[in-house]
Structure formats: structure tokens, C-alpha cells
């Protein structure tokens, strides 16, 4: 079977079809930007986009992904050599501490901004509430998503 990840086609061994997307991305394809936090869909560290929808890759078997589905990971955020506005804003506000949750945070933020270009603070809190940050960077995450909204083309 094939997976379309960041507009590139990857061949996946049939034996792997029951495996979770997260581990195929990380261990098989070397796309390690998608992180593992809980394996049960609680923490959001593994968030990717499936047809634009933020999705927990740690509980998504690759067999459940139809051939025409577009997967986007954090590696697909930057385009043509320039960082995505969400990445720019997170750098500008020096958001991360340990950083392990940040790919998931940015994927949730990007999905939000693509659907709702000018979110209120409450919209941001609601959309991001299932992304844990153990270091406690929430204050900056909220500010960075607001900043990213301004940077979005």
C-alpha cells in the first residue's frame, strides 16, 4: 500500500498495515517530528493532519487510511524553504521548553488557523485543550497562536 505524506508517496509493506501510523512515520520512514507521548490519544504529541483534520497518529492504524488520503506531518509545515507562520510565531515567542509536545501543538494550531483564521482566545483554548504541555508553556502557546494568526498569509 501507499501513503501520501506531505505530498510525497511512500510504499508501506503489507505486513505493516495493522501498525499505528505514528510508528510507521517514526521508525519506518524516519519522520521523527511526530512524537510519542501516551499511545492512547490523550496527550496530543502525535497529532498529524489527515485531510486537514488534526488526528492522533498513535491510535490510527495505517490500514484505516484510504489511498487518496493526504497526511501532513510537522515535516510538511515549512514550504519552499520558509518556515510556516506557526513555526515563526513559536520561535518569535520562544515558546518551547523541553519541546517534546511542540510538533503536536503546532499541528493543532495550524489546523485551527486553516479553519478559523482569526480565532478568539477562547477558540484557541478550546482547540488546543487536548494537547498537553508538561513543561507548562500554555501561556506562550496561546500568545503564539494569536501571533501566528497575524502572520498567516
Amino acid at each position: 500500500m501507499q501513503l501520501n505524506i506531505n505530498d510525497k508517496l511512500y510504499n508501506i509493506d503489507r505486513v505493516d498495515s495493522n501498525r499505528k501510523l505514528l510508528w510507521i512515520l517514526r521508525d519506518q520512514l524516519g519522520l521523527i517530528g511526530t512524537r510519542y507521548g501516551c499511545g492512547a490519544g490523550f496527550c496530543g504529541a502525535c497529532t498529524v493532519h489527515i485531510n486537514g483534520q488534526p488526528t492522533r497518529s498513535c491510535i490510527t492504524p495505517v490500514s484505516a487510511i484510504a489511498p487518496d488520503v493526504r497526511i501532513r506531518t510537522v515535516e510538511g509545515l515549512a514550504e519552499n524553504g520558509s518556515l510556516h507562520p506557526v513555526q515563526q510565531a513559536f520561535i518569535e515567542l520562544q515558546v518551547p521548553q523541553c519541546g517534546w509536545c511542540m510538533s503536536g501543538q503546532m499541528m493543532s494550531a495550524t489546523a485551527l488557523l486553516e479553519q478559523s483564521p482569526n480565532p478568539s482566545r477562547e477558540d484557541i483554548r478550546a482547540a488546543m485543550k487536548n494537547n498537553y504541555c508538561r513543561c507548562g508553556c500554555y501561556h506562550r502557546i496561546a500568545l503564539a497562536v494569536e501571533r501566528a494568526a497575524k502572520l498567516m498569509p
Binding site: 517514526r26 524516519g30 519522520l31 521523527i32 517530528g33 512524537r35 510519542y36 506531518t73 510537522v74 515535516e75 515549512a78 518556515l83 513555526q87 513559536f90 520561535i91 520562544q94 515558546v95 518551547p96 519541546g99 517534546w100 511542540m102 510538533s103 503546532m106
Partner: peptide, 23 residues
């Protein structure tokens, strides 16, 4: 001075830098 942290860009651009990323 609040110089930009050395680890931040890597942490936001999917660099292999944690133990779970090591191969």
C-alpha cells in the same frame, strides 16, 4: 540579554535530538 535559545529552532523543525529519535 534575552538572546534566542540555542535549542528552539531545532525543537520546532522536527530535528532528531531526543533519545526516542535516536537510530
Amino acid at each position: 540579554k534575552s538572546v534566542p535559545r540555542v535549542d528552539i529552532v531545532s525543537k520546532l523543525t522536527a530535528q532528531p535530538m531526543y533519545s526516542y529519535d535516536m537510530t
